[in-house]
Nucleic acid binder design. Structure first.
Length: 608
DNA sequence: ACGGGTGTGACT
DNA sequence: TAGTCACAC
């Protein structure tokens, strides 16, 4: 029920509300909580942060070790928490005997090796959940099974704060009567289609269809995937990734709250950009990562006019570090999208006051996040100073600045940012374009779901951007160059600092599990966010380790002009990373063999 | 059940 | 690469 109803029914009820900052919901409390739990779980095996409160753990190694060194059957006593497990296929009626049956199952000597591993997993997971509870005060639920799909399914079967196990022999029974809509990925349109188009309601029904038949209806990949999951087969690997791949900040403006003026849109974009930037700064500071693409999403409708439900296009551009830069670029992206949305007829000559459009949703997000190799302290400082530089707001400066912004500005030459006020402080900029994939590290993962948050203290969020003042402050200006043209060209050519980073090859993480992983998915509930903070150092450590791997780059990918734009200090630092042996034979970019001009194939001279 | 704020991945 | 769509928490 809604809060109001609840209050009416229970006047003394304690309702917890999501914190608000900058006029919008602030989820940092939850992000921090999630990170705390991940940092604990990641110690035990490969970990994948599946969402803000969910993780998957691949405990294969830990389980195998236990089986080899101290198998359950050799233990004199089994963890009480483990004995509380729900094991599918084992009846646990009356309260006294079931722990015995669980113990028997875990210690069964004649068990299939896979189930013996599961038995170890049960003990490990029980231990982990206790540790999470003790160290964070969050409880969590878990599923222990042979793959992600089954573990996820199981984790939701006994909540809160319990764990469920799927023995190999229980898979069929579990699945046959299970409504397909309960399976991850089938909760939406595909599940509906399966139901209405093929009459499939349960996974058991799905079992009747041949792989070919399913492929005819849903394509090769989806068809095969469906055929497999009906049999409890899921080859999905647990990704070793503890950090999010993107950051976003958005807000909806339902019904009467829809935005109707450019200046209002700009106001909210500024708020959203500010939050986004704060998070980017934390990421840089804590994880040494840089995002390189900024994307603007909006939802809109045009009152009255025909096809008022046309989609508002999303737009993106290179992400430049600096709050005002993000705000500026976001607004420019919006205007570019708006013109496209309104069509050739969107031009101004519309006498009456209010616009014909209504914005019901806005969001800005940052993606293509790459690690900065360890040891690049000057690069860190560079980006930090970038964000520190306040404003030098002069229209002339703005112009130049604009010319430099590739995508976001390409459109901004014309329109009026009139009413918008606020000096747009164009600072020196450095556009970042593109990046490369995730260099995952391998750790375990887990996810928790705070059920009741009693955290009323918004300040428990740990990142105060003291290191990355979001604005104002003295200007260190002169050490970075303000030129525009060169950077613009390099941006066009898609080369920049991040391009260099991206080639830093994630050291082959080896580690190739195959089948029969003990995968765990935990879901937690409840928790009183105590002010526990500094666990951040632990996180840093984890993240730091993987960065020590060597990295290489292709000389051919560094544009001379890009290099020239870098502060001397950074040019020097980069030089230390350059690996002559990686020099390509022919001009190529991104290793895809495509030729590219304007690329230097030699070490750029240091410039001061 | 529904809505808000996020986030990921497939596909074009 | 940019942009859309589906799905999930």
């Amino acid at each position: 029920m809604r809060g109001e109803e609840a209050k009416a029914a229970c006047p003394d009820i304690q309702l917890v509300q999501v914190p608000v900052a900058r006029g919008k919901a602030d989820l940092n409390t939850y992000r921090t909580a999630g990170s705390e739990v991940v940092s604990i779980l990641a110690q035990s095996g490969k970990c994948e942060r599946a969402s803000i409160d969910e993780v998957y753990l691949d405990l294969t190694d830990a389980a195998e070790s236990m089986l080899a060194d101290a198998p359950p059957e050799s233990l004199e006593s089994i963890d009480e928490e483990a004995l509380k497990s729900h094991i599918l296929g084992i009846n646990r009626e009356d309260g006294d005997d079931f722990k015995e049956s669980v113990r028997d199952w875990i210690c069964r000597k004649d068990a299939d090796r896979r189930d013996k591993l599961l038995g170890c997993g049960i003990i490990i997971v029980a231990e982990l959940r206790k540790q999470v509870l003790k160290e964070t005060e969050f409880s969590c639920s878990a599923g222990v099974a042979h793959n992600k799909m089954l573990a996820k399914l199981a984790s939701g079967m006994n909540k809160p704060a319990q764990q469920t196990v799927v023995p190999y022999a229980a898979v069929q029974e579990l699945l046959t009567s299970l409504p397909i809509k309960k399976m991850k990925q089938l909760g939406g349109k595909l599940g509906t289609s399966l139901q209405t188009d093929l009459g499939i309601v349960t996974v058991g029904d799905l079992l009747q269809f041949s792989e070919t038949k399913l492929q005819e209806h849903y394509g090769i990949n989806t068809g095969t995937w469906l055929w497999n999951i009906a049999r409890g087969i899921s080859g999905e690997e647990v990704q070793g990734r503890l950090l999010p791949k993107s950051h976003g900040s958005g807000k909806t403006f339902p019904g009467p709250r829809a935005l109707r003026s450019l200046s209002n849109v700009q106001h909210w974009l500024n708020q959203l950009s500010e939050e986004l930037y704060e998070r980017l700064s934390s990421d840089l500071e804590q994880n040494k990562r840089i995002a390189s693409t900024l994307t603007l999403h909006a939802t809109a409708f045009r009152s009255k006019d025909s096809d008022s439900h046309k989609k508002f296009p999303s737009k993106s551009c290179p992400l430049r570090y600096g709050v005002t830069k993000v705000q500026e670029d976001a607004f420019n992206l919006f205007q570019a999208a708006l013109r496209e949305y309104m069509g050739p007829f969107g031009t101004k000559p519309q006498g009456n006051k209010k616009e014909t459009w209504r914005i019901t949703g806005l969001s800005v997000s940052a993606s293509k996040i790459v690690d900065i190799p360890s040891g690049t302290s000057s690069i860190m400082r560079y980006f930090q100073s970038q964000s520190t530089i306040p404003s030098c707001s002069t229209s002339g400066c703005l112009q130049e600045h604009v010319a430099v912004t590739p995508s976001a500005s390409e459109s901004c030459s014309e329109q009026k940012s009139a009413e918008t006020e606020a000096a747009m402080p164009p600072d020196k900029d450095m556009s970042i374009t593109d990046t490369s994939p995730d260099l995952d590290n391998s750790y375990g993962n887990m996810d928790m779901v705070p059920e009741k948050f009693t955290c009323q203290d918004v300040s428990c969020q740990s990142n105060e951007a003291t290191e990355f003042p979001t604005q104002s402050g003295s200007n260190k200006g002169t050490q970075t160059k303000t030129s525009g043209q060169k950077i613009k060209e390099k941006s066009r050519g898609m080369h920049s600092v991040v391009d260099i980073f991206k080639n830093y090859s994630a050291a082959p993480r080896s580690k190739q599990e195959t089948q029969e992983d003990s995968t765990v998915s935990l879901t937690s509930n409840r928790g009183s966010l105590s002010s526990s903070t500094s666990h951040s150092s632990e996180m840093n450590k984890e993240v730091g380790d993987r960065r020590e791997t060597e990295w290489g780059y292709k000389v051919g990918e560094i544009d001379q002009s890009v290099f020239d734009e870098l502060p001397y200090e950074i040019q020097r630092e980069f030089r230390s990373f350059l690996r002559p042996n990686k020099r390509p034979n022919a001009g190529k970019s991104k290793g895809d063999g495509s030729a590219s001009s304007g690329i230097a194939h030699y070490f750029p001279p240091l410039k001061r």
